[in-house]
């Protein structure tokens, strides 16, 4: 689990001002599923990502409440309008208090 929280973010190589940009992001995370013993769910603090927050130059543009029915190593796609150069930050928060952040610079060509 050494890789947990490793984040990859892909944006198109050339972005023009005003473009709607499609971003793809992947985070390495186990996203534990509920275990069962004798058909009964086992109660423990399962580790999975339950919140994703995307900010662009400090403004929140997308948030997601995720559950365990999102795959291991979750992958998300979304778009945003590139109005100014700056930083796109994606934060993943999990149930064990983990916070994993990835950033990507948005530059115009």
């Amino acid at each position: 689990m050494a890789d947990i929280g490793k984040i990859r973010i892909r944006v198109p190589s050339s972005i023009k001002q005003g473009d709607v940009v499609r971003v793809r992001t992947l985070v390495i995370h186990p996203m534990e599923i509920v275990q069962r013993r004798d058909g009964k769910p086992v109660d423990k603090n399962y580790q999975f990502i339950n919140r994703v927050v995307v900010t662009y130059n400090g403004r929140e543009i997308l948030a997601a409440d995720t559950t365990q029915s999102v795959s291991e190593n979750p992958f998300f796609t979304f778009t945003f309008r590139a109005t100014e150069p700056g930083t796109l930050k994606i934060a993943f928060l999990d149930t064990h208090g983990g916070k994993y952040e990835g950033t990507v610079d948005i530059k115009f060509s």
Binding site: V20, V21, R22, R24, I33, Y56, R59, E60, I61, L62, A63, A64, D65, T66, T67, Q68, S69, V70, S71, N73, P74, F75, F76, T77, F78, T79, F80, R81, T83
Partner: peptide, 28 residues
């Protein structure tokens, strides 16, 4: 997802700054 034990997969909260209402994910 209708037949998952816990049907709710994800909820996205969008803003106009996104330009289009498009979200994608990998689900179980």
């Amino acid at each position: 997802s209708d037949k998952n034990r816990r049907p709710m997969n994800a909820r996205f909260t969008l803003t106009p700054a996104m330009g289009t209402a498009l979200v994608g994910a990998n689900v179980r």
